[in-house]
């Protein structure tokens, strides 16, 4: 069975900033108060000279080069090869939050109810039952389209073939996202900068070599002892062993 490459194609200019997708997502995924799996950038506009204003819906971009996966120490976050989504295994997640900082889109948050990192997974549970992601099915203007890019007959594949589409990626971090924007995408700013947490870097750069050295040295010592034991089975204290009362020694 061919692998899927699930993606969203978003027609941002048709977004009304009605918050339907945010509400639908929150209910569908039990997202705790104050946290959101998806967003509308450029919402609640101040008055602008240019019109029409473009609101830009978004969510986790299920990147092909996910920095969050790189930052996860436990492998709880991984790229699902079957459908291309970036997944969080909640039982494996230790809630360290390294992936939060590592995501250049701020797509991740700490689910305070569950104590784990959380983010959009294209509504994996709904998809199991043949339902579209909640944000997609609820969207009044159907700004959000969802499907499999590997399926040439899917709506998203057709849209990408027929239209110019851009990805609104964070310039500082190249992640190859899987959300495509049709037409004028709207805001391009990202308030978040991806970074690896200090502790993570310390681990990677310093702690890891040091630990390896310590364990290595111990190992070497033990090996030496073992070698000696094998090589010199009859090692005994010299005759002037003094206080050592060797008499009884076997």
């Amino acid at each position: 069975m061919a692998n899927q490459k699930l993606a969203m194609v978003i027609d941002a200019p048709t977004c009304l900033d009605c918050k339907g997708c945010l509400a639908a997502c929150k209910v569908a995924n039990n997202v705790p108060d104050g946290k959101w799996r998806n967003w509308i950038k450029g919402a609640d506009p101040e008055r602008r000279a240019s019109s029409p204003v473009v609101f830009q819906p978004g969510n986790c971009m299920q990147c092909d080069k996910p920095t969050c996966v790189e930052a996860c120490p436990t492998g709880a976050t991984y790229k699902n090869q079957a459908d291309g989504t970036v997944v969080i295994n909640r039982t494996l997640c230790i809630g360290c939050g390294q992936c939060l900082a590592a995501c250049p889109y701020g797509a991740r948050f700490k689910n305070t109810d569950l104590g784990v990192a959380d983010k959009c997974d294209f509504c994996a549970e709904r998809r199991k039952f043949g339902l579209e992601p909640a944000c997609v099915s609820t969207c009044p203007t159907k700004s959000r389209k969802f499907g499999d890019l590997n399926d040439a007959n899917s709506e998203v594949a057709k849209l990408l073939k027929a239209n110019r589409a851009v990805r609104v990626a964070n310039e500082q971090t190249r992640t190859d996202p899987n959300i495509y924007y049709l037409g004028e995408p709207g805001p391009t700013n990202w308030t978040v900068q991806a970074r690896m947490p200090e502790a993570f870097d310390f681990w990677r750069r310093l702690a890891d070599p040091v630990v390896k050295a310590v364990v290595g040295l111990s190992g070497l010592g033990v090996l030496a002892m073992l070698g000696k034991q094998l090589a010199m089975p009859k090692d005994a204290p010299p005759a002037d062993g003094g206080a050592h009362e060797e008499a009884g020694h076997e």
Partner: peptide, 17 residues
């Protein structure tokens, strides 16, 4: 495109539905 024909998705662990 208010076509909501459902796309089959990969089965993944979940607890909600």
């Amino acid at each position: 495109g208010s076509d909501s024909a459902l796309k089959p998705g990969a089965a993944q662990a979940g607890t909600r539905l």
